[in-house]
Computed example of a mutant assay.
Amino acid sequence: MTTRLIAWLVLACSTALAACNTVAGAGQDISKGGHAITNSAEQHE
């Protein structure tokens, strides 16, 4: 019983950490895309 609980906790924590890294990376990519669009628009004014 305890071994299963520990295994589930480890699995849940590792999944949560992977999801956080993925969301953070996607946020950074979207932010960089937004900056590129802004810079391009400012150059063409």
Score class of each variant (00 low, 15 high):
Ile37Ser: 04
Gln28Leu: 05
Ala18Phe: 07
Trp8Thr: 09
Thr2Glu: 13
Gly34Ile: 06
Ala18Lys: 00
Trp8Ala: 15
His35Asn: 13
Gly34Phe: 04
Ala12Trp: 03
Ser31His: 09
Val10Phe: 09
Met1Val: 11
Ala36Trp: 05
Cys13Glu: 04
Thr22Lys: 04
Gln43Ser: 13
Ala36Leu: 11
Thr2Ala: 14
His35Lys: 15
Thr2Ile: 11
Ile30Lys: 06
Glu45Gln: 04
Thr3Pro: 01
Ala26Trp: 02
Thr38Phe: 04
Ala26Ser: 06
Val10Leu: 14
His44Arg: 11
Asn21Asp: 08
Leu17Asn: 01
Gly25Asn: 06
Gln43Gly: 02
Thr15Ala: 15
Gly34Glu: 10
Ile30His: 01
Asp29Gln: 06
Asn21Val: 11
Thr15Trp: 03
His35Ser: 14
Ile37Lys: 08
Thr3Glu: 12
Gly34Asn: 13
Gly34Ser: 09
Gly34Asp: 09
Leu5Phe: 10
Cys13Thr: 12
Ala41Tyr: 02
Ala7Ser: 15
Met1Gln: 12
Cys20Pro: 00
Gly25Trp: 01
His44Glu: 09
Thr22Trp: 04
Thr38Gln: 08
Thr3Lys: 09
Ala24Glu: 11
Cys13Met: 09
Ala24Cys: 05
Thr38Gly: 03
Ala24Gly: 08
Ser14His: 04
Gln28His: 00
Gly25Ser: 06
Asp29Lys: 05
Asp29Tyr: 01
Gly25Tyr: 00
Gly33Val: 03
His44Tyr: 04
Gly34Ala: 11
Thr22Phe: 06
Thr38Leu: 07
Gly34Thr: 05
